[in-house]
Amino acid sequence: MAAARAGVPERGELPKYFQVKQKIDAVLDELGQGTPLPTEREFAERFGVSRMTVRQAIRELRLEGRVQRSGRSTVAAGPKLVQPLILASYTEGLRRQGRRPGRELVVFEQLAADEALAAGLRVEPGAPVFHLERLLFADDERVGLESTYLSAARFPALATDFDPRTSLYAYLRGLGVVLADADERIETVLASPREVQLVGTSPALPMLLLNRVTRDRDGLPVEHVRSLYRGDRFSFTAHLTAEES
């Protein structure tokens, strides 16, 4: 068990690329955020391995968010953004971490709700629904893509009164809407070609997909949100309590 906890299989030795990965990880601890890594050739000579072995090690470190591409260089990445799983906006969550949130509008349209969306928002199939799609930024870095659906009948002035660069939750509070609870599902996915282009990530990079239906204090659905976050830049936390038996 001790060997397994250290990353060593119960039988056999650590793969060579994994040993190199651990050594590069130690180098990263000494580098500041945004500092370019030594080249693959330099790492290969330092550790006495092939460049292919170094490349595999760096590929895994990138998937884990320890390094990232910057132009033609691979640089040390900063710490992941930590979002608590609470009923709060993306804007509020980033500001708590001293980061600067940002949003860029991609799509703002009115469409007819299909059966699944209608069921989630408790409207009739075909009812008008606003779809708001926005890129998410943290300190000018693209980190996610968010699609929000709301009933057009309930929020008819959304298209004219809401600034999509700002917090939707703050806008809803201004209308007197009190958010009370939500159901949220989290899974890992690969981004579609369109999402890869918008977020500016690699098609091989795992993404965190969150689907949320938020309700007000009367139990009425307010929004259905599909949020896609870069797996190398985000982690989520939750406070758990014991269920009474």
Rank of each mutant, 00 (worst) to 15 (best):
L121R: 02
R122F: 08
R122Y: 03
V123M: 05
E124F: 09
E124D: 09
P125N: 04
G126C: 08
G126Y: 04
A127E: 09
P128K: 07
E133Q: 14
E133K: 13
R134P: 04
R134Q: 08
R134Y: 02
L136G: 02
F137C: 04
A138R: 02
D139H: 05
D140H: 09
E141V: 13
E141D: 11
E141S: 07
R142I: 02
R142Y: 08
V143D: 03
G144N: 05
E146M: 13
T148I: 12
T148L: 08
T148W: 05
S151Q: 05
A152M: 01
A152Q: 06
A153V: 11
R154M: 01
R154D: 12
F155L: 07
F155E: 04
P156E: 05
A159N: 02
F162H: 04
F162W: 07
F162R: 00
D163T: 00
P164A: 01
P164V: 03
L168I: 00
A170G: 01
Y171D: 00
L172C: 03
G174E: 03
L175G: 08
G176F: 08
V177D: 11
V177E: 14
V177H: 12
L179M: 14
L179P: 07
D181H: 14
D181W: 13
D181I: 09
A182R: 14
A182S: 14
A182C: 11
E184R: 15
R185I: 09
R185L: 12
I186Q: 13
E187R: 14
E187A: 12
E187M: 10
V189C: 05
V189R: 10
L190F: 10
L190M: 02
A191E: 04
S192R: 10
S192E: 11
S192W: 02
S192C: 05
R194T: 13
V196D: 06
L198I: 08
V199C: 01
G200M: 06
T201F: 02
P203V: 00
A204C: 07
A204Y: 15
L209Q: 15
L210R: 14
N211R: 15
N211M: 15
N211H: 15
R212W: 09
V213D: 11
V213H: 05
T214S: 14
D216W: 06
R217P: 03
L220Q: 15
P221C: 10
P221R: 06
V222R: 03
E223G: 07
E223T: 14
H224R: 15
R226Q: 10
R226T: 06
S227K: 06
L228E: 09
Y229E: 04
Y229R: 07
G231F: 00
G231V: 00
D232T: 00
F234D: 01
F234T: 04
S235A: 08
F236D: 02
T237P: 01
A242R: 13
A242N: 10
E243Y: 10
E243M: 10
E244Q: 10
E244A: 12
